[in-house]
Design a protein around this nucleic acid. Structure first.
Lengths: 106, 106
DNA sequence: TGGTTATTTGGTTATAATACCAAATAGCCT
DNA sequence: AGGCTATTTGGTATTATAACCAAATAACCA
């Protein structure tokens, strides 16, 4: 793979990697319904707040979400809603794979 | 997060994780233009063939690609072309983020 | 059968990701 | 200033990924 192509796919993979964690997908899904502060997300997720904060940093780091401080709280919102399009496709992949395993297909 | 929700996002993340590697994205992109055998992909990628084979196993394991043996060769093809829709969105995320860093936005 | 090509699997090592706790930082309120 | 709440950062231990080499398996052909 030539360096340019490699760089392109490295960059693509970096963004997809940011989505490749259950907690971060949950966050994206939750933020699709409106902005949330770290504490709200932490309650919903049920992990340590520092863990949630780090997941948010990953999503923010590649520009999928953005943060805004208002008073003592920091609100996160979905900046690139196109990532929601992943969900539909991935559900299809999962369903198709499950059906195949059950022997309905093939 | 209740167990059912957790399970749902675990499953979603598993598929997205399968896409979250430059080599596997390259394979998906390449297979979008037709089936390829392991050797052909290995040449294009330039890694050890065992490495490429393992990447293919990951993609096959979650049903994104499928394999078919014909003679001594095994041809892989894209089974879930909807994953190609990731590319457009991710390119947008990358571009938007790059522009922002350059100060064109905000 | 034996050799050759194509692919996968096992083993090992190196690197990266993730979780939690503790401590640091930031803003608010008295 | 001092205390309180909200969030991030640093540190560490655990687990997961990924690369390569070597060996195993599969199909073909002489």
């Amino acid at each position: 793979m030539d360096p340019k192509t490699q760089g392109r796919f490295d960059a693509l993979a970096a963004v997809i990697k940011a989505m490749a964690h259950p907690t971060r997908l949950f966050v994206v899904d939750e933020l699709s319904r409106g902005e949330r502060c770290v504490y709200e997300l932490t309650e919903l997720i049920g992990a340590d707040i520092s863990t949630v904060s780090k997941h948010l940093a990953v999503l923010k780091g590649c520009g999928i979400v953005e943060a805004q401080r208002r008073g003592s709280r920091i609100y996160y919102r979905l900046k690139m809603p196109c990532v929601l399009s992943f969900f539909g496709c991935v559900e299809t992949v999962i369903k198709s794979d499950a059906e195949e395993r059950l022997g309905y297909v093939e």
